[in-house]
Nucleic acid binder design. Structure first.
Lengths: 302, 302
DNA sequence: CAGGCATCATCATTAAAAGCGATTGTTTAT
DNA sequence: ATAAACAATCGCTTTTAATGATGATGCCTG
């Protein structure tokens, strides 16, 4: 009774529908002989006949036992079909995906990725969570945008180099390209010491520049408001600058730094050794494409 | 994707529970190698890996695809188990049975059969229907009590010979055994010309007796009331007499007829060539037993 | 960093079964 | 009496299931 085969139930259902072993066989693409043996096997496993065979050209009739088996069997077959369909949908890219992200990516890269993903897979469910920058935990996320390494059981792909640029009030610096040491002693507003920030500030030190950090906040809009208000300048990654639309702000100007600070790397992470869903795999592809399109934009050239 | 095997799903569920192919194999009574191949087969059929194998002693982890398969797979396995249990219950004698019956059997035989059946199988559902005597259709009944042949696609077993006896007012006939021809011209109340009735009346004619049928009804109580009221006598099968409790009625007396009229045969019928449910099979056995107990009763002796 | 350990994949082998074609046997319809 | 429709059965081939042995991988420990 434990050796139940879906194939046998399918045969039984076909026989019940057709009223004949032979026609059921035709419908299933088997020979009559095979169906006969399938039903025999099923009857062995349930411990009794499921059809009465009247002999001659009269249709077979289900037995009381057969009725019990058939009733449950059809449900079983329906569930099996549902499984197959769910798998097909999954392989076609439907399903759920959890993506972790952070400020600038949320604004610049993700919207495009999400839109393209939804266009390709209207049935998919995309869940985004923007973690606090202090807690870059991959947790149960499928994908996580982040700008640094994340432990050794995490793999990643680099999406783009995000160069640090100087944002100052228009007129504060005359040249487009500003030498690092010009910032020595200059007032700066900056991020807290999370993310890539410490590494950036080390670059100042190495260049002999010691700017005065007069205000720290993680909020980019707040930082830029401070710059506009004349509190000081800001050194921010291009992505954050672009996200805030600084290029089209008449009161501000974006400068390159000389020598350039090693750009932060925007990466897309996932747990190492885990098989991606087709949806996640596609999301990675799209993210790479989108990032590469961004790289081609004028402001990032050179 | 159509070659899904319950065995493989069971293996998958075990692996998911145990976190290891080997332990799953132990639990299922297979070797690790077998489980490995079962999962491989499952993965072939769903078109992708269902587990990530991190290697080393770390537990395997389900993939997104695996999660989809497992979710449906567990339901499938549950349904399969439900089927098995339903079959077991059925084979143990649970289920439903439809029995057709008629007056005297309803009163004398059936109650005992039903009680014993319910005692043996508390979970069973017994549905009785008392057909009009003119319409002895077996229809969708599993079993039908009836006193005559019922067409040639019906089999039966004889439960008992039910002899015809004369019921008269006490004092109407002095002897216990009444010669048939004493009824010539005598007033009789009788059943309508259904059931076995015509055959019985032919027996009178063959014996040269022509009783006057002064009233016909299918209601036994009515008939007996008429006998008590002096309308005439009645020739009824013992079962009907017994059912009405005539033996303990001081105003009436039961006589044998000489020569005896060939008794009617109380039979239990079912459609020919149909496999019985265990419940129906048992019901037949019980009915035979109950009838044979009745035959042993004094009034039927000799 | 080498060796031990736990784990899964693979391979060759054997046993089982699934499926097929041909045939037989049974029952109805002509 | 035949023919037609049907399922069971038999012998056969191919496929699959399960096994035990072996190899590969990646932890953990000393």
């Amino acid at each position: 009774m434990t050796d139940l085969e879906l194939r046998h139930l399918a045969a039984m259902a076909a026989v019940a529908d057709e009223g004949s072993f032979g026609r059921a066989a035709t419908r299933l693409g088997y020979t009559q002989s095979t169906v006969s043996q399938q039903i025999a096997a099923l009857e062995r496993s349930v411990g009794g006949p499921v059809f009465d065979r009247p002999g001659g050209p009269r249709p077979v009739r289900i037995t009381p036992l057969g009725a019990v088996v058939l009733e449950h069997g059809r449900e079983l077959l329906a569930k099996a079909a549902a499984l197959a369909e769910a798998v097909d949908r999954f392989q076609a890219g439907d399903g759920r995906i959890d993506i972790g992200t952070f400020q600038s990516v949320s604004t610049v890269i993700l919207p495009t990725v999400v839109r393209r993903l939804r266009d390709e897979h209207p049935g998919c469910e995309i869940r985004l969570s923007e973690e606090e920058p202090e807690a870059p935990r991959i947790g149960d996320l499928d994908l996580l945008f982040y700008d640094g390494p994340l432990g050794d059981d995490v793999e990643h792909v680099k999406l783009l180099d995000d160069p640090y640029l100087l944002v100052a009030r228009r007129g504060a610096f005359s040249e487009h390209s500003v030498p690092l040491d010009r910032l020595d002693g200059a007032p700066l507003v900056a991020w807290p010491s999370t993310c890539d920030q410490p590494r950036m500030e080390e670059a100042f030190v190495r260049a002999g520049a010691h700017p005065k950090i007069v205000f720290r906040t993680a909020g980019n809009e707040t930082l830029l408001a401070m710059v506009r208000a004349g509190m000081g300048s800001a050194v921010l990654p291009w992505l954050a600058i672009h996200a805030a639309g600084v290029e089209s702000d008449d009161r501000l100007r974006v400068h390159e730094l000389r020598p350039a600070i090693t750009p932060r790397e925007i990466c897309l992470h996932w747990r190492a050794g885990r098989t991606h869903s087709p949806l996640a795999a596609r999301a990675i592809e799209i993210a790479v494409e989108v990032a590469s399109d961004l790289t081609g934009e004028p402001a990032l050239e050179h």
